[in-house]
């Protein structure tokens, strides 16, 4: 049984229980359960300074599920370095909304076109909505 840490998107106006519900369902669908909850602080959500630090000091976590990949797109560049660091620290990396799972850097590499294109599209859309 995998033990998931879930990290919801603090910037969204949608109720947090809805995000948690999707993350929980994702964990169940992938042979695990959510055992710990958290989120980035608003002051550092763009750089995501909290999550890897918190993962490392929490015992018995095998995977981390984020509500959305958007959480890695709030800075000026996509934070793919953090994705890679999470994987290199031996955590499975999941995104509930997009139903994506990365267990290795190879998984990440194979999906690079989709992720990079998504980031550019996300930034363009965010700009037009503002």
């Amino acid at each position: 049984m995998k033990n998931f840490f879930t990290c919801i998107d603090i910037t969204l106006t949608s109720p947090q229980p809805e995000q948690l519900s999707l993350c929980r369902q994702h964990a169940i669908n992938n042979g695990g359960e959510v055992v710990f909850y958290g989120s980035e602080d608003l002051s550092c959500h763009e750089k995501q300074s909290f999550i890897l630090y918190k993962l490392k000091k929490t015992d018995n976590i095998s995977d981390v599920v984020f509500f959305t990949i958007n959480q890695f797109c709030y800075d000026t560049k996509i934070n793919i370095k953090l994705m890679s660091d999470i994987i290199n620290s031996n955590y499975g990396l999941h995104f509930a909304r997009e139903n994506l799972i990365f267990q290795s850097n190879e998984d990440l590499y194979k999906f690079r076109v989709e992720i990079l294109a998504y980031f550019h599209s996300f930034k363009r859309l965010s700009k037009s909505i503002k």
Binding site: T68, R97, E114, Y118, R124
Partner: peptide, 12 residues
């Protein structure tokens, strides 16, 4: 792949 997306999440 690189055309602007709509409001639907492109990865979803």
């Amino acid at each position: 792949i690189f055309a602007p997306s709509g409001l639907k999440n492109q990865l979803q």
